[in-house]
Computed example of a mutant assay.
Amino acid sequence: MRPHRKPRFDYRFDLEEEIARLREHRALPSRAIPQRRDDNILIATWNLTNFGLQKRQEEHLRLMAEIMKPFDIVAVQEVADDLEQFERLHAHLEGEWRYLFTDIAGNNERLGYLYRKDRVRPTGLAAELAMRGYERRSIVIEGMEPEEAPFTGFNRNPYMVGFQSGDFTFSIVNVHLYWSNIALRRLETKALAKWAKSRIRRAGPPNNDIILIGDFNMPHVRPGDPIYDELAEYGLSLPKHTTNLVGTNLAGDSDYDQIAFFPSRTDEDFAGRMGVFDFDNALFKELWALSTGRRKKHFFQYMRYYIADHRLLWAEFKR
């Protein structure tokens, strides 16, 4: 991972005022995050942005915890080898929260989950998705010569964990697909979708409700986007969130982060509500006001270093 450059200026803020703004923003009708109920579960994904390399201060970790609190499971990406800040973030979450994470892989990243023990329990399945030789050789893209771009495995093995919440038993596969090479990203996407399709009707887990979640590095959720097309080819559905005109990156123009599943298995469990929590439209209003003209970059420098450069994406399911 390469940390963003640390801002060369100081900015002081009132923590309680910022928390109040977050709570007001997430209650807006256009952002409305559902309340926890006996019959629902809220699943989210968030790329934490070089987490453990960029030295957030305690008040920033408090704000990040506040962003995560409404949810029952948060799949996270870009967690560093050093887990000290991750453990401090966990300490700021209220309630019975637990966590799981992988070892470091490509780009020295871990993948992980934070979940509420009082709402969700692991079923016992916890594994990284690594493909065998003959499986890798079968991953080819039409029009692309295998020797030109062979699939040698995932740069960061997807991390699958089985969970149960009420009557809903499901497997989440947390991914962070390759960024800098579109051919390799397409191969990873095909491998992931093909594997998931092969598992949904198996007798043993992971099967039935398989939810792919994480940072797909997908510019747009629409036909013609190569990553979207690879997923759709195998029957995966990528519901469009209802947060109008808001992408999951800070610029708001891309849909990098996604939650995907097979309608034939999971549509009846999906509550139909899904959204982006654009915390950057609530936090640090004074800094935004001060950062006029070309100095608007100060706001974005501060946000992506001390909070994140991805927004959180969530979906509601039935339990």
Rank of each mutant, 00 (worst) to 15 (best):
V221D: 15
S30L: 09
Y134L: 12
R31I: 13
R2S: 13
F168W: 05
A32H: 15
T189V: 06
N50W: 01
E148I: 14
N107H: 04
Y302N: 01
L192P: 14
A271E: 09
A149P: 12
R37A: 12
G247F: 07
N155F: 11
L111T: 03
T292P: 05
R186T: 11
Q164A: 12
V140D: 03
L100Q: 12
V173Q: 04
R36L: 03
R5W: 06
E87F: 04
P226T: 03
D255S: 14
D118Q: 04
R121T: 11
L236N: 07
A232G: 02
A308T: 02
L89W: 07
L238M: 15
E268V: 10
A80G: 06
T49V: 08
A80K: 11
R21M: 05
E316I: 09
L114K: 00
F262T: 05
E188R: 15
L129K: 15
A191Q: 09
T292A: 10
I200H: 00
K190C: 12
D278Q: 11
I210E: 07
H220Y: 13
R121S: 10
F279L: 06
N157W: 14
E188Q: 15
T189F: 05
I227V: 10
L111S: 02
E109M: 07
I307R: 01
M144S: 15
A183N: 14
L313I: 10
K285P: 00
R21P: 06
Y11I: 01
E78Q: 08
Y306T: 04
L250S: 03
Y228R: 07
G133A: 14
A193C: 01
E286Y: 01
F13L: 00
L83I: 13
N157D: 14
F216H: 01
R186Q: 15
A20R: 11
R88W: 00
K285M: 08
A130M: 15
K296S: 07
R199M: 09
K197C: 05
F101P: 07
G106S: 01
G275S: 01
R186A: 09
N108P: 00
F13A: 03
P223D: 07
R186F: 11
R88V: 02
S165K: 01
